[in-house]
Design a protein around this nucleic acid. Structure first.
Lengths: 355, 355
DNA sequence: CGGTTTCATGTAACCGGTTGCATAAAGGAA
DNA sequence: TTCCTTTATGCAACCGGTTACATGAAACCG
């Protein structure tokens, strides 16, 4: 005579539905999921069985409101189409998933204002932010950090929890590597002006150039994209350099294509070094590149974030990840002097070099 | 004598704080933001002024609980490192932002089980899903669709709202293009077995092959990655074909690198056609590819989703997006018969360059 | 001028969970 | 046996909003 499983078809079952069916209070149902140790073994089993039968799943939103914990985190990247950030995202998601967090992803398109808006919009729904290469001024970041826990990736601000990929040594090794091969002048194709990594890498290259007797010429780019790298080619050819160190793989790939378009081949006419390792095996020839374990960087960022949220004391923690110069096929001896092959005459038209 | 702005420093101000300061009810504050037309002009201004002064921002979570609308949507992709999906994500985000939605991103890593788990986890927090190339069986999708609105991208299931990128015509054109150049045998390097697009593209290629007298050989791949494309090279060389149509740009890029590694050049020795257009200008030579407007596909998906959520009647809507064969530099006449250049003897040992 | 609308605002229930406190039952010590 | 813990569960308030309904005042109308 008892009305068995009255599974309403239209509405998702709530904690009250389960409580009613199980003939217990809502609190008990709640505990069966959240604090099972407070209940007897049989009760937990009983409630869970009924819940399962009804297809009950605790309402995330309600729980968030009641506990004040959103159970979400947000990852902000400047450009999701850059494979570096795509890989990072995967690391973040996999760790977030195993830590019971869901992940918002926001792409700021390298735009600080958009970055600001996105953080504000998301703030109410997340317990913390992972800001990858944020372009916002320190002051603004501090404001946001006041409301929500923030972990930075590749931005070094005191008192912030942060993950830094330290490419300095590898860039120095790369310069040394080029010097040993006989290169005497190399170009650094730089990344975003506001990027901390770019500053670090540039400094390392300049210092190493000094030490190993390699003249360094800097090429500025608008954004670290394939196209920007490609656009550098003509200038590189005229620059008198024989090697290129790029801010990242995407730029390096662009540079290679640009050089090819001008009839130069790598590594015979130019040596090229990238960074991230994320495209290195996807070029022909395979790119000598400074490898970064992006996946692990993402995971570490989540770990750090969880850490800080759990125990404020570890905010301010600074985790440095190593990089690794992997020599592949885009670096070699420069052409013997005097036999250089330059399809583009230095000073040829287009370069309004009104001396 | 009145206690002015008592701004508590520790806690974010709530609707009650504003109500107290403004000496009105909480309902009025709520309306001042949600239904201002129900209040007098002055009241709206008054409440908003106080709110602003206090730094009040409506709590997204609370609103979500109370209204039953999460104000979020989720995008599920099988592989965020594939630039096609990265671009799609950007389209989704930009439209979502202008429609007041925040976006969860989840990467299923081509794994149906993970896809299922992710949907379940996110279901409570979103009003709808955009499932890009879902690999889940129809039955499972129907279950999810019963709980949450789902818009599919590149999966054609009746009664689902869906966006389909119809590449069939372009693939046929591509085959015709190759036939006109003189190719008599071409390979189709396929995408994921469970992918709707792959089925569609394969059928189109086969049909066109028949029509234009081009023999089609199919190459299966595990996943549409650069590496998978690269791995096809040896087989392609032995296959007796002179052209390749790939499922997407990533595979095409891999194929090109693989061919290069075997000493063949594109388009002299092999013609290559990709799809998506997302890497086409990033290869050397630039890839002949079937262009898809990924950004707009993402935007359209959000529009459709909002549409369906607003008015169930438009569920079942089927939006087809066109593609466009863009001929660049990887397709050309095949080498005259008899003068074919095959560095790899068919069936020769793997390059054991001993002695 | 009384009655009916219309408009602006307040009251209180509700969304679906969590949790501090109360209570009852069971176990243990004296 | 009695009293004190300990354990298992219920009660009810609370998280921060939204909204159906009630109320009172002003405007309109014949």
């Amino acid at each position: 005579m008892e009305e068995k499983i009255v599974k309403s078809v239209d509405r998702a079952p709530t904690i009250s539905d389960v409580a009613r069916q199980a003939k217990v209070s809502r609190a008990t149902v709640s505990r069966a999921f959240g604090q099972p140790h407070l209940l007897s073994r049989e009760m937990v089993a009983h409630v869970r069985a009924i819940a399962e039968r009804l297809g009950y799943v605790p309402n995330h939103t309600a729980r968030a409101l009641s506990t004040g914990k959103a159970g979400n985190l947000a990852l902000l990247v400047p450009d999701i189409t850059n494979p570096f950030f795509a890989s990072l995202m995967r690391g973040v998601q996999s760790k977030a998933l195993s830590t019971q967090y869901a992940t918002f992803l926001a792409d700021s398109d390298e735009n600080p204002d958009l970055e600001d808006v996105l953080i504000a919009k998301l703030a109410a729904q997340v317990d913390g932010f992972i800001l990858a290469s944020p372009r916002l001024p320190k002051k603004t970041l501090l404001q946001h950090a006041g409301r929500r826990v923030c972990v930075l990736i590749n931005r070094d601000i005191p008192n912030f929890a942060r993950i830094l990929v330290d490419g300095a040594k590898s860039y120095e090794q790369a310069v040394e590597h080029l010097a040993r091969l006989g290169h005497r002048a190399a170009a650094y194709v730089s990344g975003p002006r506001l990027s901390w990594s770019n500053g670090q890498r540039l400094r390392a290259v300049l210092a190493a150039g000094m030490r190993y007797g390699v003249k360094i010429i800097q090429f500025a780019t608008d954004r670290p994209t394939f196209e920007a790298g490609e656009a550098c080619a003509a200038g590189l050819i005229e620059s008198g350099t024989t090697a290129v160190l790029a801010y990242d793989d995407l730029l390096a790939q662009g540079v290679m294509a640009g050089l090819a378009r001008h009839g130069l081949s790598v590594p015979e006419d130019f040596s090229v070094v990238g960074c991230d390792g994320v495209l290195a095996t996807r070029t022909y020839p395979p790119l000598t590149s400074i490898a970064i374990d992006c996946h692990s960087a993402g995971e570490k960022a989540v770990e750090l974030l969880v850490d800080v949220m759990h125990d404020k004391s570890s905010s301010g923690k600074r985790i440095v990840l190593p990089t690794d110069l992997v020599i592949r096929a885009t670096t070699a001896k420069p052409r013997p002097v005097g036999r250089a092959y330059h399809p583009l005459m230095p000073g040829s038209p287009k370069q309004t070099k009104s001396e």
